[in-house]
Measured scan of single mutants.
Amino acid sequence: VSFKITLTSDPRLPYKVLSVPESTPFTAVLKFAAEEFKVPAATSAIITNDGIGINPAQTAGNVFLKHGSELRII
């Protein structure tokens, strides 16, 4: 599955597209996205474009099915 993750704390709204296997734990996606944007993973969260928080204790495939591919990291 592929996710387009936007960094909301930067006024330029940079984004990265990450492709991972469906079975990947979403905690790993969060950690990798945080490292890519050089923000601390421990204090970061991934939310939907509607501002709904995503529980990272599920697979990337589940997140994709529930929330789609466009996400934000805060």
Rank of each mutant, 00 (worst) to 15 (best):
L71F: 13
G61R: 10
S69D: 04
P40S: 09
Q58C: 09
A41E: 14
T8I: 03
V39A: 07
I52H: 06
L30S: 15
A28R: 12
I47W: 08
K38L: 07
N49Q: 09
T8K: 10
P40V: 03
P40Q: 05
L30K: 15
G53I: 14
I46M: 15
A42E: 14
F26I: 15
E36A: 07
T24S: 09
S23P: 13
A57G: 08
V63Q: 03
A33K: 00
L18Q: 05
I46V: 04
N62M: 10
I47G: 13
P14M: 10
N62E: 13
S2A: 05
K66C: 08
A41W: 04
E35P: 01
L30R: 14
E35Q: 10
T48P: 11
N55C: 07
P11G: 08
K31M: 09
L65D: 12
A34I: 10
A33H: 02
P11C: 08
V29R: 00
A57P: 05
A34H: 08
S2N: 06
E70N: 10
K31F: 06
L7V: 04
N55K: 12
I52N: 12
R72K: 15
F26K: 00
V17S: 10
T8Q: 12
I74T: 15
S23K: 11
L65V: 11
V20F: 15
G68Y: 01
I54G: 00
S69H: 15
S23I: 11
L65G: 10
H67A: 07
I47S: 15
V1L: 03
D50P: 02
R72A: 08
A28I: 05
F37I: 02
L71M: 05
F64P: 01
L13S: 13
L30T: 15
I46P: 03
N49L: 04
F64K: 09
A45N: 02
I73H: 15
K16N: 06
G68C: 01
T48V: 03
V20Q: 02
I54H: 00
L65M: 10
H67Y: 04
P14S: 11
P56Q: 14
K66Y: 06
I52Y: 11
H67G: 02
D10T: 05
A41M: 07
E70C: 10
E35A: 11
T24N: 10
S44H: 08
N55A: 14
N49G: 08
T59M: 11
A42N: 08
S44Q: 00
G51T: 01
N62K: 12
R72G: 15
T48K: 05
I54F: 01
A42P: 02
T48E: 07
V39Y: 12
V17C: 03
D50Q: 08
E36N: 04
N55R: 08
A42Q: 05
S23E: 13
A34Q: 09
D50K: 07
K66S: 11
A41L: 06
Q58E: 12
A60P: 00
P25M: 13
F32G: 14
D10W: 03
A28T: 11
G53S: 14
S9F: 07
T6D: 03
G53E: 15
A33T: 11
S23N: 12
Q58Y: 09
T6K: 05
R72I: 04
E70R: 07
K38T: 07
N49W: 07
V20A: 05
T27A: 07
E70Y: 04
A28V: 13
P21M: 13
